[in-house]
């Protein structure tokens, strides 16, 4: 599964590079001059959201270097430090800015690492969902007929269910099938698989729609006339022309994927406590909410809320900026 998806990502990137390569400089110039940049700089919300999102990314991906402690280093964790409150409260420990969790892990470091896992799962599942959705949408739109009908009926059926339910069901079924395997290794892949299968429909529908428009244009007909195989027409000729809206869906779905991942982890079917994502941290903290140790749940919760809010705002702006009707 992973091999296939990697190869497909490579080919997607390769085609983008091929079409963009001859005039990289002028593409940059075009961007500096574009409506998008103009509208971005004029929108205060967009700039703030972009800076916020960027900061979260930096914090998450440099966690091993900037986090004050390593929550996975068992040698440095002491159970005696468990449930230390944040620094401004009584009985605090100056080593732990936001306090510690039930096992004595520094909460701030835990949040950085948790954000990292949340973002990695979010990105991977968005990419996987996009690959599935784009491929099926391309095939459905280009082939038409019975293939199209089957793919779109499946999409319709799936659209009647909320994504979280589908993710839960796939997760449960995967646990049944891979029950004997090591859960700590497979949780990550099961999670990405479940999220990808819950979110592919939107990409497929969008790409199918634009493909049906593109395939009747002259350049595609010309390519067909000179005998280029369908698969190459789809990947090299149509694909670069239908990927615009995909970017918007992907941004909005990143927020959705992060929320869904956090929810699954909170419900105990996502990331295991040994590799905690933000959702797992909140789930751990939830057990201590009643005994007064509120910080274990509330700080990761705030981090999650702010992260999602920023990505959402960015996605909203991108959707409006790329929508010609609103210009």
């Amino acid at each position: 599964m992973s091999d296939v998806s990697e190869k497909q990502t490579e080919s997607v990137i390769a085609t983008d590079r091929d079409t963009g390569a001859p005039d990289t400089m002028s593409a940059f110039g075009r961007f500096m001059d574009s409506d998008i940049l103009h509208s971005f700089l004029r929108s205060k919300v967009a700039v703030i959201a972009a800076i916020g999102t960027f900061m979260f990314f930096i914090l998450a991906f440099t966690a091993p270097w900037i986090a004050p402690h390593d929550p996975f280093d068992l040698a440095s964790i002491s159970i005696l430090d468990a449930r230390v409150p944040p620094i401004w409260m009584d009985y605090a420990d100056p080593r732990f800015l936001l306090g510690t969790d039930d096992q004595g892990r520094d909460l701030l470091s835990g949040i950085f690492y948790g954000m990292r896992i949340s973002l990695i799962v979010g990105f991977c599942s968005v990419i996987a969902a996009a690959i599935i959705g784009i491929s099926l949408g391309l095939v459905a739109g280009y082939m038409g007929g019975r293939v199209d009908a089957v793919i779109m009926r499946i999409a319709d059926v799936q659209l009647t269910f909320p994504a979280i339910l589908i993710a839960l069901l796939i997760d449960g079924a995967a646990r049944g099938i891979f029950g004997s395997l090591d859960r700590e290794v497979f949780s990550f892949w099961i999670l990405i698989f479940a999220l990808a299968l819950s979110f592919w429909v939107q990409y497929a529908r969008t790409v199918r729609g634009s493909t049906m428009v593109e395939k009747n244009k002259e350049y595609v007909q010309a390519a067909r006339v000179i005998g280029i195989p369908s698969i190459i027409i789809m990947v090299r000729h149509i694909l670069p022309n239908v990927t615009g809206p995909v970017l918007v869906i992907a941004t909005i779905n990143l927020a959705l994927a992060i929320v869904t991942e956090a929810t699954l982890s909170f419900l105990g079917v996502g990331m295991p406590p040994t590799q905690p994502s933000l959702g797992t941290l909140i789930a751990i903290g939830n057990d201590f909410l009643y005994s007064g140790e509120w910080w274990i749940a509330i700080f990761p919760g705030l981090a999650l809320a702010l992260l999602v809010l920023n990505v959402n705002l960015l996605g909203d702006w991108l959707r409006d900026a790329l929508n010609p009707k609103l210009r």
């Binding site: 929320v259 956090a262 929810t263 909170f266 419900l267 509330i298 809320a305 999602v308 809010l309 959402n312």
Partner: peptide
């Protein structure tokens, strides 16, 4: 409403419990 859309359901629940129950 924007905050309401961004906050995951379970987090809203936890926050409500924290404020009104605990």
């Amino acid at each position: 409403s924007l905050v309401g859309i961004s906050l995951p359901t379970f987090l809203i629940g936890i926050l409500l419990i924290f404020v009104f129950s605990v």
